[in-house]
Amino acid sequence: MKNDLPIIRLRGRGEWLLGRDGFVVSFFIHRDHTEVAPAIWGAVQTYRRAIPPGSLNWYTSDDGDMVPLDEEGWEHNRREVIDCLEGGGRTVELRESPSETGGYQVEYYGRLLDSPFHDAPVTALAFTFPSEYFLEHGADHLRALALELARELPFNFGYVSFALVSTQGAWASADWTVLDGLLSRYLGLDVYSVGKAGSVIGTHSLGPHWLTFLGRPLLGRLGGIDAMRRALSFPEVSLRPMEGDRLLVTLGEGPDPIDTEKGAIPSQYLALGRLLKPFMFEYTGDIDEMQGKMNCWRRRLCP
């Protein structure tokens, strides 16, 4: 297990905490949210049972305000996920803190695939953990928990990674000099914005991660489980088939921040990156500076 994870505290104006070191578990599901609502709520409850009591304290109300997450708030969010037969989008955002980024967060964006408001939408779900949770429980525990979170989800793509945990992609408003330094040094550090990614990712991937989940139709485009087994014949790699033509690829005993000051990129990450490269999401057309930066960054492990 890697125990040399860097401690990161990314602050903005007024010293508000915009991002911190931790882990993200993300899933992108190429289904209307009306089809997967019970599985989504089941995963949220699995996460709730796994984290320390009182770790989630606030949620985003219908009018956009942050309000305390009491039992009435839990029921409100359950209805937001489950009571969806009339269609439309659904959003659930649960947080540790009402203002700063905390280690424990849930972000869920339920969408319809034919939504006219997004380019290539999917239903997206993400859970975060502070690094302290990982260091206390270990890599095997986090991997088993990720499998349990994924058990009923018909994902196209998903992953678990050491990450810059941030609320709704708030890392993007930080000092880019500091952020560029972090991303240039730690190639295994994920920066994510699950809401934005879920509106454009379609059936694409977001590159290789410590734990990479592959499902329909992406796994088929990669040649299936047997092709993955042949291409990833490294001693550090394990492949775990899952029901429903799904696969979990594990790239090492524990997550690797891939510190470029300490060593080269592990070969198994590059190998999976080569496989995923043709199916990677990237912004196209008239893109802005941020989108261009993100395109380059996503290809960092895809030679």
Rank of each mutant, 00 (worst) to 15 (best):
L5N: 07
D21C: 06
F28H: 14
T34R: 15
A37R: 11
A43H: 02
V44G: 01
V44E: 00
G54P: 03
D63V: 07
D65T: 11
L69W: 05
D70I: 01
W74F: 06
N77Q: 14
N77L: 09
R79V: 13
V81L: 07
E86M: 09
R90H: 09
E93F: 04
E96F: 00
P98S: 08
S99E: 14
G110N: 02
P116M: 02
L125I: 07
T128A: 04
F129W: 15
F129A: 10
L135G: 04
L135F: 13
H137G: 06
G138W: 06
A139S: 15
A139C: 14
A144F: 08
A144T: 14
L153Q: 10
F155C: 03
F157Q: 04
V160G: 11
V160W: 07
S161Y: 08
S161K: 08
V165Y: 06
V165C: 07
G169N: 10
A172S: 15
D175Q: 12
T177I: 09
L183M: 12
R185G: 01
L187I: 07
L187M: 11
D190V: 11
A197C: 04
V200C: 05
T203N: 13
L211I: 12
L214R: 09
R216F: 00
L219V: 14
G220C: 06
L222N: 06
F234Y: 15
E236F: 08
P241K: 10
G244C: 05
L247R: 03
L248I: 10
L248A: 09
T250N: 12
T250Q: 14
G254P: 09
P257V: 05
I258D: 02
G263C: 13
S267C: 00
Q268N: 14
Q268K: 05
G273Y: 03
D288V: 03
N295W: 01
C296A: 14
